[in-house]
């Protein structure tokens, strides 16, 4: 059974990192999670981003957050990527496979996957 002791161990481990983390996320991934997004399948997309970012060791660099309706419901699930000094990238009609590719090529590799963005639909 998962114990609270494990949680305490996570705390110990994190405390050394916390100071570093503060304000150090360079990239913000925002998933649209209003009724339109949820109905179109945004929940697994959000969770896939959280898991993939962790798996690729990007937790210190990338922050995954949720927002309401972005306003282009016909293209949901919609994900926006904000990076300081760069133009916002809007990925549309997201799937879990696209998430893996975006984490690997864009968030890790720095290369926008144009064919998944709103400008290509």
């Amino acid at each position: 059974m998962k114990s609270l002791a494990e949680l305490a161990a996570i705390k110990e481990k994190m405390q050394s990192k916390v100071v570093l983390r503060e304000g150090s996320s360079d990239i913000r991934v925002v998933v649209g999670m209003a009724t339109c997004g949820i109905a179109a399948g945004a929940r697994p997309i959000l969770n896939a981003f959280v898991e993939q970012v962790n798996k690729e060791g990007l937790s210190d660099k990338v922050m995954v957050t949720q927002t309401g309706c972005i306003g282009i419901c016909q293209y949901e699930p919609v994900v926006e990527v904000f990076e300081a000094g760069k133009e916002k990238v809007t990925y549309v009609k997201m799937t879990e496979d696209k998430v893996k590719e975006i984490v690997e090529k864009h968030l890790k590799g720095g290369k926008v996957i144009e064919e998944y963005t709103i400008s290509k639909v």
Partner: peptide, 20 residues
């Protein structure tokens, strides 16, 4: 109850906490 263990420094949206 989780926050009581984690204290104020580790947020609940920490990935390891979420996985727990």
């Amino acid at each position: 109850e989780l926050r009581a263990v984690l204290g104020d420094d580790v947020p609940l949206d920490n990935i390891e906490v979420i996985m727990w």
